[in-house]
């Protein structure tokens, strides 16, 4: 994770950041589940599955958020050494890879996602939440959004000199 407080990025105020509140909801659900299990002696059927549902949403949104901030894990040793025109070539390669992966994810995932949505596919458990029906289409949406944002980032980086950052997450 980044060492610095997140003040240096203008994109920091993305509305997507609100999705991180779901993590607190998961904390509350889990505390409730453990109390229900040990103090009331009756575990819920829904706590684990609801946590799973919400976390899957957070995972997908987090990828789009990281893309908005152009922070996906990369090695910039060579990138930082080469002159600016070469960097643009590298940027173009990175864009192409991003489009292939996110595009493939969205385009070829669409039929499955659509089927899950229209049949309102459920998780097949006791509580049976519609996790596939929501998460499968959401993957398509997230991947498509990431592809679009990658294009925007590429164009924007071409207009102004991006700050060289050494930000990595571990």
């Amino acid at each position: 994770m980044s060492a610095e407080p997140d003040t240096h990025h203008q994109a920091g105020r993305s509305p997507l950041a609100w999705f991180s509140l779901l993590l607190l909801v998961i904390v509350v659900i889990t505390l409730y589940e453990v109390v229900a299990r040990y103090i009331f002696g009756s575990p819920t059927v829904w706590a684990n599955e609801l946590s799973l549902f919400l976390s899957a949403i957070v995972f997908l949104v987090s990828g789009v958020y990281a893309m908005q901030r152009d922070e996906h894990l990369r090695i910039s040793v060579i990138y930082d050494m080469v002159p600016r025109p070469v960097r643009r070539v590298f940027d173009a390669i990175a864009l192409l890879c991003t489009l292939v992966f996110c595009g493939g994810l969205a385009w070829f995932g669409f039929p499955t996602a659509w089927r899950a949505l229209i049949t309102w596919e459920r998780f097949g458990t006791a509580w049976n939440p519609p996790i596939p029906a929501v998460i499968k289409p959401l993957i398509v949406v997230a991947a498509a959004a990431m592809a679009l944002i990658a294009i925007v980032n590429f164009v924007r980086n071409g207009r102004r000199r991006p700050p060289v950052e050494d930000e990595r997450i571990t």
Binding site: R37, P43, V45, N48, E49, G124, T125, A126, W127
Partner: peptide
């Protein structure tokens, strides 16, 4: 495991934990 099994055991008074 969640599903039919826990439903049956619950009816018999067991407490299935996932």
């Amino acid at each position: 495991p969640p599903g039919m099994e826990s439903e049956i055991f619950q009816k018999l008074g067991s407490a299935p934990v996932v």
